[in-house]
Design a protein around this nucleic acid. Sequence first.
DNA 1: TTTCTGAATTATGAATTCAGAATCTCTCCC
DNA 2: GGGAGAGATTCTGAATTCATAATTCAGAAA
Lengths: 225, 225
Amino acid sequence: MMHASPITRRSLAEELAERLRDLVISGGLLPGAKVDEAALCETFGVSRTPLREAIKIVASEGLLTLTPNRGARVATITGSEIAELFPIMGALEGLAGELATARLTDKHLLRLDALHDQICASRNNAKWLNYSKANRAFHELIFEIAGNVALQQTYQGLMVRIHAVRFVAQQPPDAWDQAVADHDGIMAALRARKSREVGRLLRRHLDNKAHAVIAALSAALSAAS
Amino acid sequence: MMHASPITRRSLAEELAERLRDLVISGGLLPGAKVDEAALCETFGVSRTPLREAIKIVASEGLLTLTPNRGARVATITGSEIAELFPIMGALEGLAGELATARLTDKHLLRLDALHDQICASRNNAKWLNYSKANRAFHELIFEIAGNVALQQTYQGLMVRIHAVRFVAQQPPDAWDQAVADHDGIMAALRARKSREVGRLLRRHLDNKAHAVIAALSAALSAAS
DNA sequence: TTTCTGAATTATGAATTCAGAATCTCTCCC
DNA sequence: GGGAGAGATTCTGAATTCATAATTCAGAAA
């Protein structure tokens, strides 16, 4: 028998949901901005039906906000939401760290080390885009090693809701230093295969991040007023 | 000024999404069953457009599975998915327990005690329906006390995906005994306001539950073959 | 019989249409 | 000048329509 051909076309709605997500996360649509159905239909070359399905999906994920008879807007994020989300992400990433430690191979450690080095280098020469890329990759790798797909998906679902702060509050350099210090500790615990410790440090890392973000946010808010 | 009128009719799609969810969770539509659009349009008295939007939403939550050009089916659950989901729920409920302990009032404790008593009573006279109701209420109350809305929502989102096992595997009585014993310990730790301990016990409780469910599932599967 | 083929039927995905709500605009009046 | 309100316009939500893919079923061939 021939090799089975994997022809899996997705529906327009799924495709559009992904495009919408990307638009929101990349900042193509800023928090609070109105989602113009007609314009998006034009740019994507589709009718309103699948686009509206996509909007409903992305709204159910929390990236858009629907108001009856008034359409969709890009979701905004408040300090109290951030204060809620970070501990959850901490619990999830703590679990990921524990699972990852149990499955950690030397090859994994090499990849983590490489990313950690990138993070440090980017911090040292202030390449903040590189820094956040490598940082994201580092955290994603931990989830990948943990090998729990649902865990990663749940985490990602919360993570995307945080994206909005990027457009409101910039992290000051000392927040990076704290993060790098956290990572140092995490790497040490990983190398020692102390899963409980890895979990604890990741929870604390997210807690530190939460404080830094909230501080940056309130600074931005008071500067605006 | 008059009291603001709460005439916020939700969209049909949102309404239908909730009905669909209820249908799936209540067992009105069993795992693996096809979602008949025409029949549902008929029963709900709506056109296909909002119904299909609702289907897309509920599918994005993981309760339905979409296959291109082949419509929607009620999601089924596998042992490996359960093995993934329970640790996540454990991490979340562990966090909820820690947060709840920090905010615990004596009034809260009374309500928890009342539910715990109901659970024990239902176990003793084998009222399974009462048991699971009181059990759910107990766990929900912990999240309510914790006061983190996003945490509860995330937990619920995972919880509903577990519903499908009810139709496949029944819990044996000794699993209930274990659960009641776990609850005893959790109550004691709550009364002592040992938040760390509450978290630890809740994680272990969910871990025990996972093992019980997986055992029941594999028993059901081997019985079926 | 059983299995294969292809037309008829049905279901799905997406575009279009339609009704009603929200928004805008222009006039009129103070 | 500065609203208040009628009417036009635009936008949203939902029904309908249409094209195409999947399924069913009758009939032919083994």
